[in-house]
Design a protein around this nucleic acid. Sequence first.
DNA 1: TAAGCATATTAGCATATGCTTATGAAGATT
DNA 2: AATCTTCATAAGCATATGCTAATATGCTTA
Lengths: 122, 122
Amino acid sequence: MDSKKFEKIFSALSSPLRLQITLLMAKRPLCVCELENIFDVSQPAISQNLKILKEANLIDERKEKQWTFFSTNKEILHSVFSEFFELLEKEDTFIEIAGLKISDLPYDPKKSCEILRKKKKL
Amino acid sequence: MDSKKFEKIFSALSSPLRLQITLLMAKRPLCVCELENIFDVSQPAISQNLKILKEANLIDERKEKQWTFFSTNKEILHSVFSEFFELLEKEDTFIEIAGLKISDLPYDPKKSCEILRKKKKL
DNA sequence: TAAGCATATTAGCATATGCTTATGAAGATT
DNA sequence: AATCTTCATAAGCATATGCTAATATGCTTA
């Protein structure tokens, strides 16, 4: 299961500044010079954080005259979160290290741990 | 706006290990000794990560005999993510540092930045 | 072509994070 | 009671993160 996408998005949204920026940019597009004044941080801090949001695929950008306007891509946010919930509800999960599915594990920790430890030794 | 809750949850889910643990525990309750064998990390690493998930309010725990079973609280996940999307769609947002709403900002960066800079100096 | 503005990038630094090993505490088992 | 087992906590360390100041890039306009 590839969860890099989720990690990137959750990580991008885990910083107070980036979360606020994301919420603001969901209302309307904003440029770096506006954001730098709205939040009291340096211009590079804004650019760096926008880069992280961009790499998480969370924002759109559009150049207009001398400015670059950034905005939150709410559609992607919605679709990724939907995917995440599908994964949460998916009936079974493969346990890579042990080469078995979670449904193969007995409910008794004594037995399940023994199975897992054996698998690990191989 | 209080966004600590969201930061905590996003941060909790931003680590590969915690994300995997969360997905597994969504399928069924698991104890520390099982998790420590499923993922190849030390027992304290599991406990510490469960603590972070617990502080984000993402897991339930239940003692049974000598074990403590942890499971993902999917209801809370759903409700918090819903709240997050409401916040995303909320029509207006207050810009604390400038003492104004985002809808008060003109669309022209030249004007908006000037307004913001003035507000900051006060 | 030069100057000015918006944004990106780099280097450097302080703090946060995430693991390990060692140890502690509480309940279960002998 | 003594020992195991399970889980939590603490200390220590390496790496990651997030800012600032300095600098570069690239576009716009005089």
